[in-house]
Design a protein around this nucleic acid. Structure first.
Lengths: 109, 109
DNA sequence: TTCCATAGTAACTTTTTGGGTACTATCTTA
DNA sequence: TAAGATAGTACCCAAAAAGTTACTATGGAA
């Protein structure tokens, strides 16, 4: 039983993951993108209550963290598609586990 | 391949998990408690930089969420021990997965 | 009789995060 | 020639999270 070790460095790696998926909207955005490629407007409509500013901001952060791709079509009106990178796909087991745990937690309380 | 479903409710369960383990100090506190039972002062010394107020606050939240136990010994000077509950122990796979992912992420960038 | 140790609390300030409103560019369609 | 659609940006404000400093109680040891 190693894993989730005691050293400072290792503990920080949990925090890194938390930083990448944390925040008000990121897991919701990721959920949409796990379904498939989405345009900006589709995401905007899917995430009830998010403002354009917040959506843009969260998408930029996910892009900078290498979790999603941003594909701009040079046309008017603009068309921008977002999708998961390979790295982004690797978050699935974690999000699944968190999903399961959340359900179990709700059930127990 | 179900899991990490698309419905609003299910997505929220990921957010619930995030709420329980999120924040500046909780995963660090949990790491210490996965090692074993710890007194308040031990946690305070182990978590470099945390203030007493923040430690108390985070411990109270974890306790209210059913993740940790607080055992008060009626003696002076006071002695209070913190430990994981059964529910708290079930977070291990998630924290392990986040730990692994964080390491992999650091490696790839 | 004063000091020390432990596990806190109270009141306040700073930092971070999130949100609201208004505005932009450009091609197409009516 | 004016309106509509898309994917944003700029600027400002509110709320939440985190941090700082000072303070408390109590029994035992020096």
């Amino acid at each position: 039983m190693e894993s989730f070790d005691t050293s400072e460095r290792l503990s920080c790696s949990v925090e890194i993951t938390l930083k990448v998926i944390g925040g008000r909207w990121k897991v919701l955005i990721l959920r949409e993108l796990f379904i498939g490629i989405k345009r900006f407007g589709e995401l905007h409509r899917a995430l009830h209550g998010i403002t354009q500013k917040m959506l843009t901001q969260q998408l930029r952060e996910l892009e900078q963290d290498g979790i999603i791709n941003r594909h701009v079509y040079l046309q008017v009106p603009p068309k921008v598609e977002y999708s998961l990178t390979e790295l982004g796909e690797t978050l699935k087991p974690i999000l699944d586990a968190m999903h399961e745990w959340g359900l179990m937690y709700l059930d127990k309380r």
